[in-house]
């Protein structure tokens, strides 16, 4: 198998898509997640299209949105009386280092191939694993609340 083929494989698969197992079924938060996913896909596209210089702004926007999302989520959970809200808060806090690294990678992406690779990988993991998958912890709680959260 050639190297080219490998890379094209990866490109195609690295596009982020919020399929059902990633949905909280709580509209406000799902919307946030989708918005973050859209940015990730823009970054991935920029990397694929050799426009890595776009990444810095995109990732800065991503980090800003993510932080806003965390704050909104924490407030929502606190209001709803989610028992593990403290733990979730701390989890968000622990992502700070990673976000700093994302920004660093994005800054370097224009000139450094390793930074581009790391950015692509880390961004996807960060959103899908650290943010969305961890949010699934309180999915059952939201469902039990029986509140669709429309609006």
């Amino acid at each position: 198998m050639g190297l080219l083929e490998t890379q094209s494989n990866q490109r195609e698969m690295m596009m982020v898509e919020l399929t059902p197992s990633f949905l909280l079924e709580y509209e406000t938060l799902d919307k946030d997640h989708q918005q973050l996913a859209d940015i990730v896909n823009l970054v991935v596209k920029a990397l694929d299209d050799d426009e890595a210089e776009k990444c810095e702004d995109l990732v800065a926007g991503f980090v800003k949105s993510a932080k806003a999302h965390f704050a909104k989520e924490e407030a929502l959970l606190a209001k709803a009386g989610y028992p593990n809200v403290k733990k979730h808060q701390e989890h968000h806090k622990s992502l700070n280092t990673q976000m700093e690294h994302l920004l660093e990678f994005a800054k370097m992406a224009g000139e450094n191939e390793m930074a581009r690779d790391s950015l692509r990988k880390e961004l996807v993991f960060f959103l899908m694993d650290d943010v969305i998958t961890t949010d699934m912890d309180f999915k059952a709680f939201i469902e039990a609340k029986g509140n669709g959260g429309d609006g």
Binding site: M13, D129, T133
Partner: peptide, 11 residues
């Protein structure tokens, strides 16, 4: 205990 993880294809 409540383990979650996501592994994208190729990783």
């Amino acid at each position: 205990d409540n383990a979650s993880l996501m592994i994208p294809a190729g990783e």
